[in-house]
Design a protein around this nucleic acid. Sequence first.
DNA 1: CGTTATGTTGACCTCCTTCAAAGGCTGTGG
DNA 2: CCACAGCCTTTGAAGGAGGTCAACATAACG
Lengths: 234, 234
Amino acid sequence: MTTNCTNVEWLGRAKCSTCEVRNFVLFSGLSVRELDAILQPIDNLRVPQNTTLYEQGTDAPSLYTVRSGLLKLKVDMPNGGQRIVRLLRQGDVGGMETLVGEPYHHTAVALLDTDVCRIPREVVLLLDKTSPSVHGALLQRWQHLIDQADHFIVALSTGPAEARMARLLLTLGCHGSHPESLFPSREDMGALLGITTETASRVIAEFKRRGLIQIEKRECVDYDQTGLARLAES
Amino acid sequence: MTTNCTNVEWLGRAKCSTCEVRNFVLFSGLSVRELDAILQPIDNLRVPQNTTLYEQGTDAPSLYTVRSGLLKLKVDMPNGGQRIVRLLRQGDVGGMETLVGEPYHHTAVALLDTDVCRIPREVVLLLDKTSPSVHGALLQRWQHLIDQADHFIVALSTGPAEARMARLLLTLGCHGSHPESLFPSREDMGALLGITTETASRVIAEFKRRGLIQIEKRECVDYDQTGLARLAES
DNA sequence: CGTTATGTTGACCTCCTTCAAAGGCTGTGG
DNA sequence: CCACAGCCTTTGAAGGAGGTCAACATAACG
C-alpha cells in the first residue's frame, strides 16, 4: 500500500550525446550527429522514490531506459496483493511492450530516486530500422529482460524461503566495498519472493542474528557472500 | 529423470512457402520468391516425445520455431531437480539467445511428438535486416516469450498449490470440444509449479474427486472451467 | 508375464501463513 | 523540544499447507 505522494518530475530534454551512461543505454554506437538529429523528443525524467512511472493497462506511448536508481515492475493479483516480476537497474528498459503496440503490462514504481529517459515508440522504431547498432542493442535488452524473468522463476520463486531470500540478497549484491545498494521493505521482499511480509521479516531477522548480513539505517552494509551462497543452493 | 531414448529425426529441407502454419511462424509476410531465395538452410525436424532438442550451456547455432507439438524449456537446479520456465507451443520460438551470441539458456525437451523448424542464426539475422515483416514478427515473438515468463511468475509460482494447479490447467486449456491437449506427468507439473511431485499428485487426485477435471488414459477429457477459475483466484 | 517407471496414498514433521500484539522509527503539531 | 500518530518491523502462538519418506498400486513395456 505505498502512497504515490510525489509526481514524476521533468528534468529537461535529454542530452544523449553527453549522457554518461550511454554505454549501458540503448544508443551507444550512434554518432553525435545522428543523436542530435533524431533524438529531439526524448525527455529526461526524475522519478522520486515510491512514485509510479506508469500503470499496468494504460496506453503505452513510450519506453523508458534507467539511467540510475531502481524500478520495480509489479502486477496486481486478483486477491488484492501484488507480485513483483522484475527489477530494473541502470541500463535496463521498461515498457518494451510499446513496440508491439500493447498497453503497459506492469506498473512501474521507483524503489529509489530514479533517473530515466522516456523515448517515444516512434523514435525507437525509427532508430531500430535505420541504425544497426541500436537494433542490436534492442535485441540485447530484450534478451536481458527474458534472462531476468527466468531468474525470477528459477532463483526467486523456487525452494524454501531462506534459500530464495539468500538468492535475492545475492542478486541485489551488496558488497562491503560499495554498500549503496537497496535494501527493500519486507513487503517488497515478500512480493519479490512470493512469500508473506512476516516470513520475509523473520528470515531477515534470522540472517542478521547469524551474522550473514549487516544492516544500518535500512541500508545494507555488508553481506557474507559465501554464507549466503551456501544457503542459496538448498 | 527422463531418458532420452530416441533422437531428433530429420524430416527434410523445410518447404516454408507451403508451410501450413506460416501465419504463426516467423516468416509470414514474405513473398514466395523471397522465401525460396533465402531459406535454403532451414531444416524441418521431428522431435519425438521425451527427446532433447538442445541442451543448456551448449553452443547455440540456431533457433527453433514450433510447427506442432509441445516443448518444455527447463533449467537444472543445483540440488539436482529441475524447474520448467516455459512451454513452447505452435508458433513459439526457442533458442532466441542465439541472436545475441549466447549459448542455450535452457534444455528443450519434447512433451509431445513435436515438429520444429531449425533456422540458423545467420538466416534470422539476415532476414531481420532485410525484411521488415520478419523483423516485426521477431519483436512480437520476443515479447510473447516475456509475457509467458511473466505468466510463469505471476500465475504458476504464486499462491497455494491448488490455485497454481488450477491456473496451469486453465493455461493448458482443455475444452471438451477438442480435448487433444497435453496432460503432463506429475513430475513435470511439479517442475512447472515449483512444488513436489507428491503434492501435484494429491492436488490432481482431489480435483478429480471434486469433478473439476476428467481424465482418461493420461489425456484430459474436459475441465470445469468456471470451477477452476474460481480456485485460481485465491 | 515379470520388470520398471509412474501414480497414489499415508504418516509425520517442518515450514509457512494467519491473526494478533507489541516495539521502533519518522514526521507533525502543539 | 516533546508528545502523539502512523507506518513499518518484529515477534508470538496456533493452525494449516506442503515437504519428506516410505509403502503400495497401477500402468507401460519388453
